[in-house]
Nucleic acid binder design. Structure first.
Lengths: 341, 341
DNA sequence: GTGAAAGCGCTAACAA
DNA sequence: TTGTTAGCGCTTTCAC
């Protein structure tokens, strides 16, 4: 029997080990290991004996030991750029679901919207020997991701990636931007501004899509990109800086729903009505946008589905299948924040 | 030199181990270990040699091995009940901050608003040998938490806990409820309904505080508790079920901001104006409440601060100090969703 | 300040 | 079907 000390003490040792269970059940440790891992091989009788002994002793498997010995962790690291953005919660739901079904754990980490923090989180993932990594809205440079991808399968959600060792699943953000601009243009808007996502994932593509759509619509002269960063604050700031001007935009297409809400806020505070005085289109169709009180016109991506697909791709890679880019179709969800100028 | 195979292959072995680094630097493995853990003992020269060799070989410490050998993981498990609720993001920010500063990692997990999922997450924490556990908005029964608390320090955030082996940090929810009811009563409301949080953390206390405050205000006859569960949907459902009645509530005090937003939504859809036709008070003062467009009157708790305090308490416990209950003062933030009936 | 050796608890190959 | 054994990579005394 292993030393019976409380784990939290300085020289702690795991209270009950496999050896204890084996001894109590009158079998070998290897047999206990098999039972614990749910193997079919042990006889029903010995399985029952082992399980009973484990239960009685309060045995719990030591994952650190198991991981060290087996060299696999059955764990997927999931890096979420921003816990405050509901998009990540929705994506995580899908990912969690799929991973769990395949018997994998999810190791969550947040990047706090900072490439430096993300980089550190990825290091922790690698040190923790995760079997695969899913980065959502990741801000890391491609080279960094590629070098990580050389060690474990990496899939990016929300940001398209090209690279042999990397997979990605994202909606076609350029197309999404186009949908938004066309919608606004069709309503009669010409001064359509874009509040972008700065260095955030997908920001560059959405921005480029906006610019290209504006040009196609013959609105090249009205292209106006206001720097932002995927937060409400950024949206509010962007709107405050521009709503006061005589030639203020009549419509804003924003990098995501959070930014859109910030713009609406600022408009509200200025006494401008949405959509009568100013129209707003968001991006992501998070739960936020669907709230009746906000009722935001936005570009939808299949959020949870993207999490599911990303995990499936990783599981596939673990089975030797190649990583690819999966493009999802964005679609416009027209709600109450857009109207004719 | 260890076998040079790619980690992801079936019979993978860690590419570069401490032995490799030691050999390359011309020192012993123990010395490398000391350097890697940032000890002061090795000489500057050998430290530099080790670091250079590690860099050159692309060495990365194997946390599984390190944890197994050291019997501590420098990791705190943080269980968040619901990623969709911004309250948890705010709490996690504070917790992350404090943990990081103390050199601890955070192991995040989500409970998906389900006691069963939470229970499993806690098992994973224990199996992962986390040094301590912080549960936020936890739904587990007290007995379960106590038995976990017997193994590692456990602190609950957002739900007051009594138990020798358990700590907690929460605002005084009964007092918070009282603040809300008094505010509404002072505005002239009598039919004040409460949409509760069901089995969620803090729900019972907020409910009890509401009932007691109603009685104190002489409104015992108007006590009306509508079952909910801390989501927008629950709020909307609760409002839909009650707003149509002739004696409908003139004010709703809700279990949290999400529920409040749901109530506002439902009122909106019914064509009722907030606060002219119906007043709403939320709880938590999440970023959501502060959005100008929502502008929710709510009971504030120091969200990030609670995360900080909780982690500090855990770190203290790891140093032998006792776990306690820390009650934070709630305060009412009056915004635009409350007015006279 | 440095190195040798003995594990940490578990897995997996192999032998019985 | 079961038991034996040799590690997985790292930490940690304890001599030197």
């Amino acid at each position: 029997m292993a030393v019976d000390r409380v784990r939290r003490s300085r020289d702690a040792v795991q209270r009950v080990t496999m050896d204890d269970v084996a001894a109590a059940a009158g079998v070998s440790r290897a047999l206990v290991s098999l039972v614990m891992r749910g193997s079919e091989r042990p006889s029903a009788a010995s399985r029952a004996a082992v399980l009973a002994a484990a239960e009685r002793l309060g045995y719990r498997r030591n994952l650190a030991a198991s991981r060290l010995a087996s060299l696999r962790t059955m764990t997927i690291g999931l890096l979420l750029d921003d816990l405050h953005n509901p998009w990540y919660a929705e994506l995580a739901d899908g990912a969690h679901d799929t991973a769990e079904k395949a018997g994998y754990h999810l190791l969550l980490a947040t990047g706090l919207r900072s490439a430096a923090v993300e980089s550190q989180a990825v290091d922790t993932f690698l040190a923790s020997q995760v079997d695969a990594i899913l980065v959502a809205g990741c801000r890391l440079p491609l080279e960094r991701l590629e070098s990580v991808g050389a060690e474990v399968p990496v899939v990016s959600a929300g940001r398209a990636l090209s690279g042999a060792m990397l997979g990605s699943v994202s909606a076609d953000d350029a197309e999404g931007a186009r949908l938004a601009v066309r919608h606004l243009h069709a309503l009669g808007h010409r001064r359509i501004a874009h509040v972008d996502g700065g260095k955030g994932a997908g920001a560059a593509t959405r921005r480029a899509g906006y610019v290209s759509a504006m040009r196609s619509a013959g609105l090249a002269d009205h292209v106006q990109v206001i720097p932002g960063d995927f937060t409400e604050k950024a949206g509010a700031r962007a709107a405050e800086r521009t709503l006061g001007r005589p030639d203020r935009p009549t419509a804003y297409f924003t990098a995501n729903d959070l930014v859109a809400v910030g713009v609406i806020d600022a408009a509200d505070r200025r006494g401008l009505r949405v959509p009568d005085d100013v129209s707003v289109v968001g991006y992501d169709n998070t739960a936020l946008a669907g709230l009746g009180h906000i009722d935001l016109t936005t570009v939808a991506q299949p959020n949870a589905e993207m999490g599911r697909v990303a995990v499936e791709m990783l599981l596939g890679a673990l089975d030797g299948r190649p990583l690819v880019h999966r493009a999802m179709r964005p679609r416009l969800v027209v709600r109450g924040t857009t109207g004719s100028p």
